[in-house]
Design a protein around this nucleic acid. Structure first.
Lengths: 188, 188
DNA sequence: TAAAAAGTGGAGGATTGCTCCATTTACTAT
DNA sequence: ATAGTAAATGGAGCAATCCTCCACTTTTTA
């Protein structure tokens, strides 16, 4: 587990410890109360002053990004690792499905997924890169239209997740929807 | 212009007047500051006490639904009226495109579109009905897959609108995107 | 071990959400 | 017309949350 902000200077020992405490607390609180849980509560649970929380994670988005980071990194790696076993389209399908699963798991993340994915955290960056790679591969083999972008893909994932979160769509419809969207971007 | 809540007892004259004022103010403020604009500001602009606003629209969603209502009703009617002039697929395309336009116009509506459409307001209800009708017709002529639901369609509209709202995609690409996704639900 | 750098906590000002109820206004029945 | 009543109003005010700021503490460095 990385105890440093991906950005620059390494943290002082106590700061790194606190950062970790915050992330753990945040994960619990967010899973419990959704992505708009109060920062005060997170700080309290982490036994850290509110100031410390803000210093480390100036925006809600940066906190969400940090929490998602490891998972996204793992997702990207397994995706990369398996794609010689799957067709380009099937790879995208799998990756998108797993992404939805993660977003659903962090209740409320959906609404800010787009911003989070652009946050530059290693995992977020890696997963955007992986999405790009998947799309390019599929486009090169002629399976997907040329005019589809990574952002289009992220938007799909967002919309599917939102639907599940908000109007209580049955999560089992996820893969059906992913299919629909993917057929939409398929070349023909 | 309906001056009554769709639900029950008709409003008193002054209340109806105020309701209308609120809706007009809300439309302006929401278009200006997005769907999470403060209720206080809306009340102030409508020259109405905050209490009045809450009495009439207890939730943000109910306000959004009321604002969308007339427009959605109109959309449904024109859609119904023109469908002998358009192919089933073209009808859906047109309807979906107009829906996206409306959602874009109410900045921030996209994220709660699903919930709003289920609110039961006459316009929201009518447009869901119209969507259902369009889908069924297209499915009966074999133009669209059997496994596509109204909610799937709403989800797509959400995705397209989100894409435009969030990463500032050029709205002129809307119809292109609608095409993209409609191809996805086409039978083949 | 002392100076410098980094980090901390939480008080507090600002904003917003929402409730509550004394007062005002519109309807209704006579 | 008018009195009675039911509906509607406005905004004070409490609670929750956001986020900044800075006097103080802890770690690192030389």
């Amino acid at each position: 587990m990385a105890n440093a902000p991906h950005g620059e200077a390494p943290l002082r020992a106590d700061a790194a410890r606190n950062r970790e405490r915050i992330l753990q607390a945040a994960e619990v609180v967010l899973a419990e109360k959704g992505a708009d849980a109060s920062f005060d509560e997170i700080a309290k649970r982490a036994k850290v002053g509110i100031g410390t929380l803000y210093r480390r994670f100036p925006t809600r988005e940066s906190l969400l990004a940090a929490i998602s980071d490891e998972r996204l990194l793992a997702l990207s790696r397994t995706s990369l690792a398996r794609d010689d076993r799957l067709s380009p389209t099937a790879s995208i399908r799998a990756f998108a499905g797993e992404l939805v699963d993660h977003v659903i798991h962090c209740r409320g993340l959906a609404a800010s997924l787009g911003a989070v994915m652009k946050s530059g955290t290693p995992g977020c960056h890696a997963s955007r890169e992986e999405a790009r790679r998947l799309l390019l591969r599929a486009q090169d083999t002629g399976a997907v239209r040329r005019d589809v972008s990574v952002d289009d893909l992220v938007c799909m994932v967002t919309a599917i997740s939102l639907a599940i979160e908000q109007d209580g769509t049955d999560p089992s419809r996820t893969s059906h929807r992913v299919d629909l969207f993917l057929d939409g971007i398929a070349a023909r």
